[in-house]
Design a protein around this nucleic acid. Structure first.
Lengths: 398, 398
DNA sequence: AATACTTTTTAAAAAAATTTAAAAAGTATT
DNA sequence: AATACTTTTTAAATTTTTTTAAAAAGTATT
């Protein structure tokens, strides 16, 4: 016998309506009823409840489309706040957003090495707690903490198999206990995909592949309008598909992985090697940079027209395009979005990627697949972390 | 304003219950209620209706599990019949099945060249009509005709962009008019996947990749327990992914496609070339065979231990395995099934496929992915065609 | 300007689904 | 063998949801 909370049923629709307002702009009662496929009386009841509780506000009457003018409602921006955390292998960004995804406190970032760092989890929790305390926002007003992190993550168990070991404990629960707030974690690339589908370049689309161009190359898949994770949660491992026979050695142990050939880290390494080899470029100074700093410098230089940087990126782009051709053949997506850190050089990558897809894709597939550069860019992971919290939010939580 | 038939709502559950009995063995009312997540009174009403109408029969009381003995029900095999048609580029098979997937009339096959054949559609319809008439089964007892066919198929529009042109008309509607029965069409590989997930090697599994080894290499994808078709319906184009730089020329115009390197047709061509080149084998006689007959002979010989045939298949298997490694990285399926015509040499292909996957997959992915050979084999497409009909069947049809 | 037709919202009535209670038919334990 | 506890089925009572009707507030057309 399942113990279903009585409110579970009753407030189920109300939560859906609330989320619908979070994900959409102004809506009338009739529109919500239509979108949610629920009768108007039911939806009206939920909306009135949300208005009474201060989650939703009336926005006045809109233009008539041939009948009575609809009364529009929208989410109340300051009804709740969300803590969003975006991590990569070396650093953490944290922000506090309202329900319109506007930052309430400036996004802060700090260094945090995940690899072989036993203190990483404690440091992270400490930083989150300080950030929330400094914001002055009452915890009751915070819907939860969303965290995007690299690594193989088991969402249901809340475990990251790669980083942030909590002695095998549930990471969500552990951080939740330490912060006193509901915590939701997911893979960084998945969250970027979520952000692009909800508020970005592939809004409301059903079949979307989002490429997370960063120090590695990630893939977040939206299938049937939902994040797809595969049977064990490991789907989207685009970066380690065998691309070229006997190519560069990847840190996964194999050869010819996309990541080892075309990630921003790989580009940076090639750039440093090239300059040491006497290549002419505005990037002479990067030889002593870390690969990571070099990566940023290369993207900057490419956007400023440096030929060497552009050539390197074009080369990476062509390889990425080859992988995207494979992906397109298998998934037949509506849109492929280039997102993440590398989106800032998206325009430079676009041409060689498209070129490779033209060559390696069946014509029918190339012509139907849209290739877009993210506008969310580096913010995508933070937005996705916020979305993750709201997707899981329950008004009447335990 | 949508015109929803009033019966649509009422009989909705009854149809679901009916299908549940088609896809499952004996079930009690309580079990169905549990599976369908509907209350017992509702389910009981539907079951009683189905029993009264002769779709479902009582199977007596089962063993008690500590309380009242459950009354089991099951589908009535002869309540309905299904016409299943399985096509490839050169031939058609047709069968009449009952609701237990048992053939009522022997499966017949005949030659039908699809390419550049304006008469193909008329011939097909003619054959189907004759087959049904000869069976002596009343049309009222036939749930519909399911047809699996090669080519790019738009399910919603009912159009096959590759073969069987009905002057741009809706193929489903066209055949439906000509036969007087509801018609459902789908891609052959999709139907094979459907069969494997419903009655085959991946029964009830949610994330399954089914490889259709035939004259080409097809892929049917089950994602979230449902057939996935991609945005335009062209997902699963595994056979034309760029596998090797500058390999054999494919009839799609590109080079190095999996299909051109590892399909049964490619194997047959290699075999004929090899024998002409003086290879020792029991297959000397196939030099004058068509590639298609040669393909069958090679599979036969391989199963009889012919080294040359086994080597050729092993070679093809290794290439298929490389492609499956890529597929596994992207999709992280629970199970990969080797099905279709080539399943009869599945055991021979298994080892080289697994070998390639071991080499090219991240360890975590290989160890979690099950690789199985279909037991349905060549019958899979027919079973899938029958499933297609029943999935779309409505008791109260228009 | 008046009439006819829209669309949105509110309220009342009807229908559908679930919950609760009770009966039927077992098993397990003392 | 009697009692206590299960599970399945049937029936009755609620609850929930949808449908229908009506009112409110517009637009378009003659």
């Amino acid at each position: 016998m399942e113990v279903k909370a009585k409110t579970d049923k009753q407030s189920g629709l109300t939560d859906k309506v609330l989320k619908h307002f979070y994900f959409n702009e102004e809506l009338s009662c009739a529109e919500v009823s239509d979108h949610l496929d629920k009768s108007i009386p039911l939806v009206a009841k939920s909306i009135n409840e949300l208005v009474a509780e201060g989650f939703v506000i009336e926005q006045g009457y809109a233009q008539s489309s041939g009948g009575r003018r609809p009364l529009k409602y929208s989410i109340k921006a300051d009804a709740l706040y969300i803590v969003a955390v975006a991590m990569d292998q070396l650093s953490v960004r944290i922000g506090l957003f309202d329900l319109l995804n506007e930052p309430i406190v400036a996004v802060q970032s700090f260094e945090l090495k995940l690899l072989n760092n036993d203190e990483a989890l404690k440091t992270l929790i400490n930083y989150i707690n300080k950030y929330i305390a400094a914001s002055g926002i009452a915890k009751e007003k915070i819907a939860g903490i969303g965290i995007g992190m690299p690594g193989f993550i088991n969402i249901t168990e809340g475990i990251n198999y790669t980083y942030l070991d909590a002695n095998g404990q549930n990471l969500r629960y552990y951080i939740g206990e330490a912060t006193g707030l509901p915590v939701f974690i997911d893979n960084d690339s998945s969250l970027i995909a979520l952000a692009e589908q909800r508020f970005g370049a592939a809004k409301a689309e059903q079949e979307v592949m989002v490429i997370n161009l960063g120090w590695g190359i990630g893939l977040g898949m939206i299938i049937n309008g939902k994040l797809f994770r595969g049977y064990d949660g490991f789907a989207g491992e685009l970066s380690h598909i065998p691309l070229s026979e006997g190519g560069a050695l990847c840190n996964c142990g194999k050869q010819g992985c996309l990541e080892a050939e075309a990630s921003m880290l790989a580009v940076a390494e090639k750039a440093i090697a090239g300059i040491k080899d006497g290549k002419i470029s505005s990037l002479q100074h990067i030889v002593n940079y870390s690969a990571r700093m070099a990566g940023d410098a290369i993207m900057e230089a490419a956007n400023n027209g440096d030929h060497f940087a552009i050539d390197l990126l074009a080369d990476a782009g062509y390889k990425i395009g080859t992988a995207l051709a494979i992906l397109t053949h298998i998934m037949n997506p509506q849109t492929i979005v280039l997102s993440g850190r590398g989106a800032r050089v998206g325009k430079i990558l676009l041409a060689p990627i498209q070129q490779a897809m033209n060559k390696y894709c069946i014509p029918r597939l190339v012509s139907n697949t849209r290739l877009k550069v993210s506008e969310l860019g580096f913010d995508a992971e933070l937005v996705g972390a916020a979305v993750l919290v709201m997707e899981n939010y329950n008004k009447e939580k335990v």
